[in-house]
Write a protein that binds this DNA or RNA. Structure first.
Length: 168
DNA sequence: CCCTGATTCGC
DNA sequence: GCGAATCAGG
């Protein structure tokens, strides 16, 4: 799946998460397919720059900072042939993930933590794998290849995300 | 070094 | 409109 462009739903999700106080990078990660810069850029374009005071104690008064115009950007001549991922076929994967996840709340999910959802999102037992991950998931879960829940995705479900965030 | 949002500007 | 690059900070 490759989300691109700001569809109504994505914009809505973005707005909600932003107003919920989540950081741009967090939103970008959860939205997927976009960088935090994209998120911030969109936020500004939407006109909701000053969010409802979230986890930001003191935002710098943003004193006049005359930006010294950056030098010429990259020459944009980058053909760079897309290289195939070349998935390593045989590799020692971590032991099959079992038991409850290591992380209970999504807010604690770091950049290098497996975000594989475990259990029912409505249950208090719900958790995330939390093991060391290079990307979204740890080696074991990434190897599984199958998306959790076949349809339902915790890290993509705005309702679940909001609910979990609200539990903090 | 990690992160935060803000801004500019080529595309 | 979009978002990478870059900024000023914490």
């Amino acid at each position: 799946m490759s989300e691109s462009g700001w569809s109504e739903t994505r914009v809505t999700t973005l707005s909600q998460l932003w107003q919920d106080g989540l950081s741009a990078s967090q939103i970008a990660k959860q939205l997927g397919g976009v960088t935090r810069n994209a998120v911030i850029g969109k936020v500004h374009r939407l006109g909701l720059s000053g969010r409802a005071a979230a986890s930001a104690p003191c935002r710098a008064p943003r004193t006049a900072t005359p930006r010294p115009k950056r030098t010429r950007r990259v020459a944009m001549a980058a053909p760079t042939v897309r290289k195939p991922p070349v998935r390593t076929p045989a590799q020692d994967y971590a032991p099959a993930p079992e038991g409850p996840g290591l992380i209970g709340d999504m807010a604690l999910l770091g950049a290098h933590v497996c975000k594989w959802p475990i259990g029912d999102p409505k249950s208090p037992d719900f958790s995330f794998c939390g093991r060391q991950a290079d990307g979204r998931y740890c080696a074991a879960h990434e190897q599984t290849g199958v998306r959790p829940g076949t349809a339902w995705r915790a890290d993509r479900d705005p309702i679940v995300r909001r609910a979990l965030a609200g539990l903090l």
